[in-house]
């Protein structure tokens, strides 16, 4: 069946793989795994299991092999899977932390640990100035505090340059709702990073 997305490289590889070309799947993983890894890192922070989650995303692609029908660019399909997995991962994390708190852990442990995952960037920016590291840490922590859908909408718009209509496909919502999410996300960031923004403006 022909579709308007047939020119998308991801869709082409998926079609080829469905037709029996096993190498096409390797090409998909080669082309898209860095994007998925980067999105998961921006969304979840520096978690140790990001590679497992990338594997989980592609495992779902494997399971969808027979019934896949392109209704958007392949990356949109992939980001939707990644978003669902990330939200599940966040929920599991919250459940784990709740269990720890019940067993006598610190009630603030979850939020501080989550932010620490976003803040630990030294390994990724070797040689960067300490001051710059602080700014990066603060910006990442502010993004981490955004609600999940606003955070994903902002990340997809800013770093994947996805149009709002496609972000709507990923989040399962309308283009208008995405516009509102991005607007609110930027508003929250402008508030929480007010001091940094003033410095930047100066």
């Amino acid at each position: 069946m022909q579709s308007e997305y047939d020119e998308d490289p991801g869709v082409r590889w998926m079609r080829a793989w469905q037709a029996g070309d096993e190498g096409a799947f390797d090409a998909l993983v080669e082309a898209y795994s860095p994007q998925v890894y980067a999105l998961l890192t921006r969304f979840l922070g520096q978690r140790a299991n990001r590679e497992d989650l990338v594997q989980e995303v592609f495992l779902r692609v494997v399971r969808a092999r027979e019934r896949y029908e392109p209704s958007a660019r392949f990356s949109t399909f992939l980001f939707r899977i990644a978003y669902n997995i990330s939200v599940n991962e966040t929920q599991r994390g919250i459940a784990r932390e709740a269990g720890r708190v019940e067993l006598g852990g610190d009630a603030n442990a979850r939020s501080s640990r989550t932010l620490a995952e976003f803040e630990d960037t030294r390994a990724e920016a070797p040689g960067a100035e300490l001051e710059r590291d602080d700014v990066v840490r603060e910006v990442r922590a502010a993004i981490a505090r955004l609600p999940e859908n606003q955070r994903m909408a902002l990340l997809l718009a800013k770093y994947e340059e996805l149009p709002y209509s496609e972000i709507g496909e990923v989040l399962g919502t309308s283009e208008k709702a995405v516009k509102s999410m991005v607007h609110r996300a930027r508003e929250s960031l402008r508030e929480s990073l007010a001091a940094l923004l003033e410095e930047e403006e100066a």
Partner: peptide, 25 residues
């Protein structure tokens, strides 16, 4: 304010990819 926020968001370093990520996956 929006320009400054754009600058801050763009200044975030891209996540460092693990070596041979696709092969390992």
């Amino acid at each position: 304010s929006e320009e400054a926020l754009e600058t801050l968001l763009e200044s975030l370093p891209a996540p460092k990819l693990p070596p041979r990520l696709a092969r390992r996956v």
